[in-house]
Design a protein around this nucleic acid. Structure first.
Lengths: 130, 130
DNA sequence: ATAACAAACGTTATATTATAACATTATATG
DNA sequence: CATATAATGTTATAATATAACGTTTGTTAT
């Protein structure tokens, strides 16, 4: 049985910050925010980020080098991620859409190759900025 | 009338290198490869890259911070990109699939928002590596 | 042809993002 | 308990990207 994930101290600190944030956070901005908690070096942040990504607790927004909390029930969906990104205010929303996810997960290219993971980033203007 | 794009000297140098390459190229690797041609500074590379991206001549592979030539007829498709990325050999292929492209271009989220641009990256093993 | 503007260039410096390497401490697991 | 694995702390450095400034080249409108 896969037991409930227990996070290490640093992992928990980093996850807390990301979950509390309104938008995507950058690694060094996380670092500056946790120096009071005794985390002093980028390595400590990046190591926590790596593990949290592995666990599916957070995602990296590749086009922004920034990190957001997963709001998709921590399931295996980290292999199938989609985001909407506002080009004006930089807001990021995770898109949870079963049809889209199924469509892409079952996509096979012209050679018939299937893929085990994908990441999709949509760009546009969010409601507020429109 | 939109006249045929004429590239500047540096833009042409950078594009040539990217088009000749078998795989995605990183900015600094481009830089090292063109120093004999009198390009000495990262700025010169990044400026050329930015313009080439605007023109749709190349694309950035966000998950790799690397650049590939567009093989999709330089059309407006740079607003709708999809790639397959081999997790073993790092090979990248642009996916040209009208159905996929239409599906995603017309995608609207739960709030009915449509997006004017997207980028999709699939990960798996290429034929060779399987 | 030339004035005026925009685009591209060259250069130096620096900011930002990420990893290497190594010694130590904490936590599982047999 | 022994020992293996994961996490930590730390210093240093690599890799990626942009700021800022002055000059040169190319375009366009007169």
């Amino acid at each position: 049985m896969a037991q409930a994930q227990i996070l290490s101290k640093n992992q928990q600190i980093v996850l807390d910050i990301i979950e509390k944030a309104k938008g995507p956070l950058k690694a060094y901005s996380i670092l500056f925010n946790v120096q009071k908690k005794g985390i002093n070096a980028p390595q400590q942040i990046y190591r926590a980020l790596d593990k949290l990504i592995e666990m599916g607790k957070i995602h990296k927004i590749e086009s922004k080098n920034a990190f957001v909390a997963c709001r998709n029930s921590n399931c295996e969906i980290s292999k199938a991620t989609a985001f909407s990104i506002c080009e004006s205010c930089e807001m990021v929303d995770e898109i949870i859409d079963v049809k889209l996810s199924k469509y892409l997960s079952s996509f096979s290219d012209k050679k018939g190759t299937k893929y085990k993971r994908f990441n999709l980033e949509f760009f546009g203007l969010c409601k507020k900025c429109k």
